[in-house]
Amino acid sequence: MEGGSWKRSGGGEKKDLFHVIHKVPPGNSPYVRAKHLQLVEKDPDSAILWFWKAINGRDRVDSALKDMAVVMKQQDRAEEAVEAIRSFRHLCSKQAQESLDNLLIDLYKKCGMVEEQIELLKQKLRMIHMGEAFNGKTTKTARSRGKKFQISIKQETARILGNLGWAYMQQNNYAAAEVVYRKAQMIEPDANKACNLGLCLMKQGRLEEARRALEDVTHGRFSGAGDGKSTKNKAEELLREIEVRPATSTPEVGLGVEDEIMERIELVLNEWVPLRSKRLPIFEEIAAFRDRIAC
């Protein structure tokens, strides 16, 4: 009797170990079948088919839609993934909407849908200002490469602003990108955003300012994930480009900085400081910069 019980327990342990190793949930539902096809059998096309079946059968819709979109992106079917999220996100829970937005931003970037990316990033800034991000909490748990870590609202805002700056750069709107990158650097400085800021300044013909921004990168004045060798190499390459540019370089004309963006960022940061009768000096500086661009 004891031996039979041990065998059953041992078989269960082996089964559980299989699910842990392959990160496949237990069961026989369409979603479980899709995950098995994705992770164990390495058959993405069949996995997508079964994710569709899971969504239509209301089987773990939150996970099924997100996982299917990720597999589609990996298969260079990003446009289909965008349409899938837009069409079926109403079936997902409120808690899943933020992660779907983050996935959409990546998909928009892959598809070259810059306008859509900018609008969604603005929306996320509005959510932060309204206290709706992170489901009303100041931090959230994120996962990367199998590890969990905490992200604060400030870190998330800096990340969103970095993405917004990059999107403006894709539109050649270097004036707007500059302001957004400067704002992001005030929240959480890093080398990658400093390098992009230097490029924005170069595109506007402000070479000395660009040089200072890029030298901050090459001199290792930042720490963190963005302070890698590739970022420093990029900064060094841009500095060499500055050296060969003529001193009489004509500033490139930007498209202007949107007042709505400036006001939104200001409102977000005001949430983190005591209310005052006047704007913080940081905002006065940015307002002055905006006026200079408008002249």
Score class of each variant (00 low, 15 high):
residue 245 R to W: 15
residue 245 R to L: 15
residue 212 R to E: 15
residue 228 G to V: 12
residue 244 V to T: 09
residue 233 N to T: 01
residue 221 R to Y: 05
residue 226 G to P: 07
residue 232 K to C: 12
residue 243 E to N: 10
residue 257 V to Y: 07
residue 241 E to L: 14
residue 210 A to R: 08
residue 253 V to S: 11
residue 257 V to F: 05
residue 257 V to E: 01
residue 239 L to H: 01
residue 219 H to F: 07
residue 212 R to H: 12
residue 246 P to E: 03
residue 248 T to G: 08
residue 218 T to Q: 06
residue 252 E to D: 03
residue 214 L to R: 05
residue 217 V to W: 13
residue 251 P to A: 04
residue 225 A to P: 01
residue 236 E to H: 01
residue 258 E to P: 00
residue 215 E to Y: 08
residue 213 A to G: 08
residue 233 N to S: 02
residue 253 V to C: 06
residue 212 R to K: 13
residue 212 R to N: 11
residue 249 S to E: 14
residue 226 G to N: 05
residue 253 V to L: 15
residue 211 R to G: 01
residue 240 R to T: 09
residue 225 A to W: 05
residue 250 T to V: 14
residue 213 A to M: 14
residue 214 L to A: 07
residue 247 A to H: 06
residue 225 A to T: 04
residue 224 G to V: 03
residue 255 L to M: 09
residue 217 V to T: 06
residue 255 L to N: 03
residue 251 P to C: 03
residue 253 V to F: 10
residue 248 T to K: 05
residue 255 L to W: 03
residue 210 A to K: 09
residue 240 R to P: 02
residue 213 A to Q: 15
residue 218 T to G: 00
residue 252 E to I: 14
residue 226 G to R: 11
residue 248 T to P: 00
residue 244 V to K: 05
residue 248 T to S: 12
residue 220 G to L: 10
residue 215 E to R: 08
residue 220 G to T: 05
residue 241 E to K: 10
residue 237 E to L: 02
residue 236 E to G: 01
residue 249 S to Q: 13
residue 236 E to I: 04
residue 240 R to N: 14
residue 253 V to M: 13
residue 230 S to V: 14
residue 223 S to M: 08
residue 227 D to R: 13
residue 232 K to A: 10
residue 251 P to V: 07
residue 234 K to F: 03
residue 212 R to F: 13
residue 238 L to N: 00
residue 245 R to A: 15
